[in-house]
Amino acid sequence: MPQTTERVSKSTTPLLHEVIPLVDVLTTGFKTAATDISLLKPVQVAAACDVQMLNRYYRKTDDLVMYHIAMSMTACYISTITANASWPSDWIEEAKHIFCK
């Protein structure tokens, strides 16, 4: 996750098609921390809250015209993003549906 923060911090303007995969990296990291029994309980709870917050904002991308434009202009990223993020199959189908629409 530090690499994710560093990547966005170094960019003068992170592009939308770059940000979405970074959100996936953050989500995976927070999910891991939320279930890591070697961490203190407050850290686990904070990580679980972070996952919920990221998911709340992530769901909003379905309604953003700019997101659809960015993804259609970078169509090659769709399968990479969904595969690397280990999306559930229903999410992948919904992304394909939105993309085609």
Rank of each mutant, 00 (worst) to 15 (best):
A48D: 13
T13Q: 12
A48R: 10
S11V: 02
Y67W: 15
T74S: 05
D50P: 00
V8G: 04
E18Y: 01
L22N: 03
K101C: 11
V8Y: 11
W87F: 12
K96L: 03
K101T: 13
V51T: 07
I81K: 02
C76A: 14
S79Q: 09
P21V: 12
I37M: 11
D50W: 07
A34T: 07
T28Q: 08
L54F: 14
I81E: 00
L26A: 14
E93K: 15
W87R: 11
V8R: 08
T35C: 07
K41P: 10
Q44H: 05
L40I: 05
F30K: 00
A47C: 09
P21C: 14
A85K: 02
Q44K: 07
Y77W: 05
S79F: 03
L22V: 07
T27P: 00
P88D: 09
T4E: 05
C76G: 15
D62L: 05
I92M: 00
M53H: 13
T74L: 08
K101I: 08
T13L: 07
D36F: 10
T5Y: 14
T12R: 15
F99E: 03
S79W: 06
T28A: 08
G29F: 07
V65T: 10
P88S: 03
P42W: 03
E93F: 12
I92R: 07
G29A: 12
I81Y: 01
E18Q: 14
A70W: 04
F30H: 07
P14M: 04
A83T: 15
L64E: 12
A47Q: 05
D90M: 04
L39R: 14
L16C: 04
T5I: 10
D36E: 15
T5L: 12
I69K: 12
K31L: 11
A95I: 03
K96M: 05
I81V: 12
V65M: 14
S72W: 09
K101Q: 12
P88C: 02
F99S: 05
A48S: 15
V19Y: 00
T61F: 10
K31C: 07
T35P: 01
Y77I: 11
H97W: 07
R56E: 14
W87Q: 05
T27S: 08
I78Y: 02
I20V: 12
L15W: 02
V65N: 09
T13Y: 10
S11I: 06
V23G: 04
A34N: 11
I78H: 02
Q52R: 08
V45Q: 13
C100M: 10
R59S: 09
M53C: 11
M1C: 12
T28P: 00
H17P: 03
S38L: 08
S9F: 06
E93N: 09
A85P: 00
D36L: 09
A83W: 04
I92C: 01
F99T: 06
H68I: 02
D62C: 04
I69H: 11
K96N: 03
I92L: 02
A33Q: 10
C49A: 15
T12E: 12
T4A: 08
V43W: 06
H97E: 03
A83Q: 12
P88I: 01
T5H: 13
H17C: 03
F30Q: 01
V19I: 13
E18R: 06
A75W: 05
A48Y: 04
D36R: 06
H68Q: 14
V25S: 02
P2R: 15
T82D: 03
P88L: 01
I81C: 01
